[in-house]
Amino acid sequence: MLLVLGGLAIVGPSGLLAWGDNLRLLDQRRVQIAKLTHERNELQMQVDALNPKRADPDFVGELIRKDLNVVYPDEVVILLKPTESR
């Protein structure tokens, strides 16, 4: 019985050999959390820029032009591919 318990302590799902996998998963989750936090902050900035009491006119104009395809006849629109921040 003690050998079985000792074996589980080493190779079991929460044993010593699984420790490295758990640390690797923890690091992956931390990276994912950081990425999602950054994305949430970007979205919060956009929401704040659209607040009716103090809307950012440049951002509102950008959204109108992008979403509704509203441009003046003498304007040239150049679409840029968004860059990923690292």
Score class of each variant (00 low, 15 high):
Leu8Arg: 06
Leu8Lys: 08
Leu8Pro: 03
Leu8Val: 11
Ala9Val: 04
Ala9Phe: 04
Ile10Phe: 02
Ile10Asp: 02
Val11Asn: 06
Gly12Val: 02
Pro13Tyr: 05
Pro13Ser: 11
Gly15Gln: 01
Gly15Glu: 06
Gly15Phe: 00
Leu16Pro: 00
Leu16Lys: 01
Leu16Asp: 04
Leu16Val: 14
Ala18Asn: 05
Ala18Ser: 12
Ala18Trp: 03
Trp19Gln: 10
Gly20His: 12
Gly20Ala: 13
Asp21His: 08
Asp21Asn: 11
Asp21Cys: 02
Asn22Tyr: 14
Leu23Gly: 05
Leu26Gln: 13
Leu26Arg: 10
Leu26Glu: 14
Leu26Tyr: 10
Gln28Arg: 07
Gln28Ser: 06
Arg29Val: 14
Arg29Met: 13
Arg29Cys: 02
Val31Cys: 03
Gln32Asp: 14
Gln32Ala: 15
Ala34Ile: 04
Ala34Met: 03
Ala34Arg: 07
Lys35Trp: 05
Leu36Lys: 07
Leu36Met: 11
Thr37Ile: 05
His38Ala: 15
His38Cys: 08
His38Met: 11
Glu39Ala: 15
Arg40Ala: 15
Arg40Lys: 10
Arg40Leu: 14
Leu43Asp: 08
Leu43Cys: 05
Leu43Phe: 03
Gln44Val: 11
Gln44Met: 11
Gln44Trp: 00
Gln44Thr: 13
Met45Pro: 00
Met45Tyr: 00
Met45Glu: 15
Gln46Thr: 03
Val47Arg: 07
Asp48Tyr: 00
Asp48Ile: 06
Ala49Pro: 01
Ala49Asn: 09
Ala49Tyr: 00
Ala49Met: 13
Leu50Tyr: 02
Pro52Thr: 05
Pro52Lys: 02
Pro52Phe: 01
Lys53Leu: 13
Lys53Thr: 14
Lys53Ala: 13
Arg54Ile: 12
Arg54Pro: 04
Arg54Met: 09
Arg54Thr: 15
Arg54Asp: 14
Ala55Cys: 03
Ala55Gly: 03
Ala55Trp: 01
Ala55Pro: 01
